[in-house]
Design a protein around this nucleic acid. Structure first.
Lengths: 115, 115
DNA sequence: TTTCTAAAAAACCTTTCAGTTAAATAACCT
DNA sequence: AGGTTATTTAACTGAAAGGTTTTTTAGAAA
């Protein structure tokens, strides 16, 4: 049971429907019906997705007559970004000389000494 | 069935055990046994976690005698980072004047005009 | 060959997840 | 009040997730 914030956020995002909903909300508030419209899916299904996003803090909801407008809340995304920071160096090709050397050795590259 | 890369990656990361494994691997290669050691969990369970990480492209495995050393592969993390880019502006408080204005209006702030 | 160690695969179990349809709420509009 | 619209809740289903124990596989070392 992933009760930690990061797990909750990541698993909320690990669904294409929910990410599409967030993308839509990045353009501005929308009601449940508006959000559901693009999907070939029942309305209760979308409502559940919204509940998951809300529990993850990724959206918040207002009340306006019979509509419950949703809006994007980006704070959890920032947290993911922070978590990613620890790994940024691994994809930014900013490996230092030793790392490169070890990499070449592992490939069995006979020119490894050149580095 | 989340067959898209991003969903696969995010759901692989949505588990604290798997994130801990990645954190360990960010320090260098490790065997399955070494990776399993910190967890109060059977070895096959860890082996399954590794398979999930491997399917997501987050680790790769070599063969060295009877050990199968794992190493971190950061490319999928970079992809998540790219995806996050679309939302960066939402948490970076770099809202432009119009956004601020709309925000204030929504709060019913009577000083909204000042912006 | 036997034996030990590292890891994976198989079979199973329980819980969670994503969807469904049908019923309940809630607020608006006559 | 009665009806329409927007959304949620309830009850159910099938599939996937995450764990277990037991059995195989593969290589090292006797």
């Amino acid at each position: 049971m992933p009760e930690d914030r990061l797990s909750t956020t990541l698993s909320a995002l690990a669904d294409p429907t929910r990410r599409a909903i967030l993308a839509r909300l990045s353009l501005g508030e929308a009601s449940v019906g508006e959000l559901a419209e693009p999907f070939d899916m029942s309305l209760p299904a979308v409502s559940k997705h919204l509940k998951v996003l809300e529990r993850a803090g990724l959206i918040s909801r207002g009340r306006e007559a019979q509509w419950r407008p949703c809006r994007l809340e980006a704070a959890p995304l920032r947290d993911i970004n922070s978590w990613l920071d620890s790994y940024r160096r691994f994809w930014e090709e900013k490996f230092d000389r030793l790392d490169l050397y070890l990499q070449e050795l592992q490939k069995g590259n006979p020119d490894a000494e050149k580095n």
